[in-house]
Amino acid sequence: MTEAALLDSECFQTTDGDIAVVNLNSARLRSWSRFYQDPQRSGVAETVLEQEQLTAQFASDLSALGRMEAFGEQLGRLDASSPRTLVIQAQIASALHRFSDARHYLAQASLGGAPSADVKRVLLNVDQACGSHLEEVLDGRRRIVANSGRFEDRVTLGALLADLGEFDAADEAYRRALREYQDVSPFPVAWVSFQLGMLWGELVPEPQLARAEHWYRKAIASLPCYVRARVHLAEICSATGRTSEAEATLRPALANGDPEASWRLANVLKAEGRDDEAAEQLETARSGFEGFLNSHLLAFADHGAEFYAGSGNDPSRALELAQINLKNRPTVRAFQQTHAIALAAGETDAAAEILIAAKKRWGSIASSRLSSVAHDSPESREGAAA
């Protein structure tokens, strides 16, 4: 099969992306209404959380993070000792990258008699996000896929394989999930297409930008409001001299208030010599990042670090945020980001300590990935840490 045929082998008939977002918002409001009418009703709290997570991830409505946090607090007031409440609170904490809190909630839920399968499912997500016990997580993910064959299980397995440097296996896991997808929702298709774009554009040792661009475009075709896909596609367009196309890609993303879209647009405008417009967008991005860092520090520390290491032009702030993120989730990518930022900031002793710690935790994976960026500036890598 040719490369072009390989890339186009997955075709879908899904709901129009804009209509799907409208439908999601309507369903979300109905679920909140049902929750207020009967908070103890079976499944209603879980549905509220699932829909808020979808809203944050795909509709790029970052106010959903605040709603999730308030929702967890509300559940705690209703029945703090309930195992069901504790599992949901663990899911919320994990979504906000408060992984230590998530582990605490899961331990309490387990002691309180929560179903072990529910606890293990959330704990797998936490361990994978933090780069902890990954061989055990890998075994668990493979067992789950063998038993369920579900789309989301294949995608999370693919993400783990990518983290472990098994890129071809990750590609196969993602693509099999797409081949076997049977639903009409555009959200899963956009999600795995974005993951494939990240895999080939940012995670492999030698990025394949044309291949990554294909997948980012597929994600946007499925879901036009998918800000993360627009940001990454715009970076490729900009890097390959297509600044007008990069600007056109980013403009529709500004309405969502995601500071990353304003930041990337500022870079594009500056490259075009439109300095006043670039400065305005950069200030919007700075204000946005600071707002989210104040309210959800752990969820935005890695993105904030990239911003201040690059266009934000504050190396010490960048290193501070990168170290916060690294302490919270010591993944290979977190080590890679912090090491590069420390080098760029002239903190060679800190960079050396980070490299030692990375090799101790990750071995040969860390050696190859950190050495590959040792001579790169953060400005050239903006957006590399997802």
Rank of each mutant, 00 (worst) to 15 (best):
H296N: 12
G273C: 08
T240L: 11
T284L: 12
N313W: 07
D258G: 07
R274L: 13
S244Q: 14
A248M: 12
A234C: 10
S238V: 04
R286M: 01
T249S: 06
A305Y: 01
L233G: 07
F300Q: 08
A340C: 15
E235V: 08
E245P: 08
F335P: 11
A279T: 06
I324P: 03
N267Q: 14
P252V: 07
W263I: 04
G257E: 11
T249E: 10
N313F: 09
V332E: 06
A340N: 13
D314K: 03
E320Y: 05
G312P: 05
D275A: 10
A285Y: 00
G310D: 07
E353G: 03
G273Q: 03
F335H: 14
L269G: 03
N325M: 10
A342Y: 11
L282E: 07
Y308K: 01
A301Y: 01
A344F: 07
A309T: 00
Q337I: 07
E280V: 10
R286T: 10
L233S: 07
P330F: 08
A350S: 10
Q336Y: 11
L293D: 01
A340M: 15
E272I: 00
G241S: 07
L254P: 03
Q336I: 00
Q336C: 11
E290R: 12
A239D: 14
T249C: 15
D258P: 06
H303L: 09
D258F: 07
D276N: 01
T348A: 07
A278G: 12
E260S: 13
G257Q: 10
P259E: 00
P315R: 07
S295Y: 02
N325C: 15
I236K: 02
E306N: 04
H296Q: 14
T249H: 02
R329T: 09
A350P: 01
P330E: 10
Q336M: 10
E347C: 08
Q281M: 12
V268K: 06
N328Y: 08
K270V: 00
V332K: 03
E280N: 08
I341L: 14
D276K: 04
N325P: 00
Q323M: 15
C237F: 13
H296C: 09
P315L: 05
G273I: 11
V332L: 13
A351F: 12
D275M: 04
S287N: 09
F289P: 02
F307N: 05
A340G: 12
S244D: 15
A255W: 01
A255F: 03
L254G: 06
A279K: 12
D276H: 03
R251F: 04
R264N: 13
C237N: 13
V268M: 05
A278K: 02
A234R: 08
A301W: 01
Q337T: 14
P252G: 09
L282K: 03
G291M: 01
F292L: 15
G312D: 09
